[in-house]
Design a protein around this nucleic acid. Structure first.
Length: 502
RNA sequence: GGGGGCAUAACUCAGUUGGUAGAGUAGUUGGCUUUUAACCAAUAAGUCCCAGGUUCAAGUCCUGGUGCCCUCACCA
């Protein structure tokens, strides 16, 4: 970036100031004036357009950014964009004061303006505000992107999201829908009498998932802290304490690679409900996904729900399919996952090594590698896979009937794992043992220790509880049809722009 | 971290075999009272990502680096 401010614009700014125009007024509203009626309150472009025919003749006020201008000497059409959309304004010399008409000449694309005037159709019928008053609200010192293509460079779009958002209306739509989805999900939780909570992001011991953490340091306490990789263990402490239904919209941080599905920080919605279990969580997850889909605009004309993601259309009408892990495994891998010899043959065939002899965890981890390789790509979804191998589920309660399996499901959609839920393990001794095994099985570079305080909390008694975590960003990718997680994150992680900061 | 690709004006992009850096949009100036990617005329704008190298000559070829994209690895 050669210049932070466009030189021509700086000149214009000086000219404006010289002629007594404040390029950055504090208030948007038209100031009261002796010889002019008070301007009406602001209208949104979309509201005016929705009801234009009934409002023709009405005096209205619009605010927005000018992103198009077609000038004709003594008249100009402006495309005024606000959050809701775009409406045309027409400014004619006949209707304006000399000062306002002079100001029109100094206007640039990208500037914010207020226009007050009569809503009327043009000769071709487009609803247009024919301005009798007009003022500059903010001067822009940078050119907006090319008007036809918008901002296309993916790097610039992510780096300068503030430009992407106003230059590409569909991008703004994605993020407004993201906000609507979050609100809809909160609505479902409130209907089910959940309390929204905020638990710590800075953890002295990290846990609740298997991931590498970011490390930071508190100066006064003189201790290292980890940015949370999951809120799980804190949320269950709340259930121990008697907060029976809690959820958190939790930003979590994982110090791992980036990809179209991975960002170092992402949003997980976790929720826990006392006296429920994994099956209750399945029902609630289904309701949440449906509510999210409705808020995301997935409702079709016939009332059905569907989303198109990466050229594939997914029906989101409940109920979603439910399949046992072992059945899905048998179908796509070709053998019973409990048949050790058959599975060993499959592992050898696919050159998958069991990391450690005589370790249940290592064995089932390898089994799960087969699952990830052969089953998950086939799970187009929406589908719940349930009854996972207990050995790889340190936080889930084993099935009473067969403790090889645990009360856990994962929810798949669009080829991605979007949710993960358990009947929470609440036997403190078994939990301690599983934690210890897990730490012992860990690769050396991944420092981890048993969260003994969590085990102590369980010792005070965690009622039977169902818990679930939903990867909000990935869910939004599918619902909003965005290929990359970067396209549903306002500010995805990028390296700093060396030229700008140098 | 491995492999592949891209990087030229504020934006979108051309740039031939290595031979003076180009267009459209945006900007500036002028003209135009119903356009909508308005139009017409003039004009300004470049560290061709960075640093080396080859060459009489490099946007172009070579080496290294940086950033981004794709892919693999990592990733409950």
């Amino acid at each position: 970036m050669a210049e932070l401010f466009h030189p021509d614009r700086l000149q214009k700014l000086e000219d404006l100031k010289a002629s007594g125009v404040n390029p950055y007024p504090a208030q948007a509203a038209f100031p009261p004036s002796a010889n002019q009626a008070e301007a009406p309150a602001r209208s949104l472009a979309a509201d005016l357009l929705a009801d234009a025919e009934n409002r023709f003749g009405e005096v209205v006020t619009i605010y927005g950014r000018v992103l198009g201008r077609r000038g004709y000497g003594k008249l100009a059409f402006l495309d005024v964009h606000d959050q809701s959309g775009k409406i045309q304004a027409c400014l004619q010399k006949d209707l304006l004061t000399a000062e306002d008409f002079a100001l029109l000449k100094q206007l640039n694309l990208g500037d914010f303006v207020a226009v007050c005037g009569t809503l009327k159709p043009t000769k071709v019928g487009e609803p247009t505000v024919f301005g009798s008053r007009f003022r500059l609200l903010t001067k822009a010192l940078e050119n907006p992107p090319e008007k036809f293509h918008g901002l296309a460079d993916t790097e610039l779009r992510a780096r300068m999201r503030y430009v992407d958002l106003f230059a590409n209306q569909e991008v703004r739509e994605v993020f407004l829908r993201r906000a609507a989805v979050l609100q809809a999900l909160r609505g479902v939780f409130l209907q089910h009498h959940y309390a929204e909570v905020d638990t710590p992001v800075l953890h002295p011991i990290y846990g609740g998932a298997n991931a590498k953490p970011f490390v930071t340091h508190h100066n006064v306490l003189d201790m290292d802290l980890f940015l949370r990789i999951a809120p799980e263990l804190y949320l269950k402490r709340l259930v121990v304490g008697g907060m029976e239904r809690v959820f958190e919209v939790a930003r979590v941080f994982r110090n791992e690679g980036l990809s179209m599905r991975h960002n170092p920080e992402f949003t997980m919605i976790e929720f826990y409900q006392a006296y429920s279990d994994v099956y209750g969580m399945m029902d609630l997850t289904e309701k949440l996904v449906v509510a999210a889909a409705e808020a995301a605009g997935c409702k079709q004309e016939d009332g059905s729900l569907s989303a198109t993601f990466r050229q594939e259309t997914f029906s989101l009408n409940p109920p979603f399919a439910r399949i046992r892990y072992a059945d899905a495994f048998a179908e796509h891998v070709g053998c019973d996952p409990s048949n050790r010899q058959a599975v060993a043959a499959k592992l050898a065939e696919n050159k998958i090594e069991v990391a450690k002899e005589n370790s249940d965890y290592a064995w089932w981890k390898a089994v799960n590698t087969l699952f990830e390789e052969f089953v998950e790509p086939q799970l187009r979804g929406p589908v719940f896979v349930y009854d996972y191998p207990a050995a790889i589920c340190p936080l889930a309660k084993p099935l009473a009937a067969d403790p090889v399996w645990a009360e856990r499901f994962e929810f798949f959609l669009g080829g991605m794992e979007l949710a993960n839920a358990f009947s929470e393990l609440n036997d403190p001794q078994m939990q301690l043992q599983k934690f210890e095994e897990q730490v012992a099985d860990k690769d050396p570079e991944s420092v981890n220790q048993v969260d003994l305080d969590y085990v102590r909390a369980l010792a005070y008694g965690l009622p039977p509880t169902g818990g679930c975590g939903i990867g909000l960003d990935r869910l939004l990718m599918v619902l909003l049809g965005q290929d990359s997680i970067r396209d549903v994150l306002l500010f995805p992680q990028l390296r700093p722009e060396s030229k700008l900061q140098a």
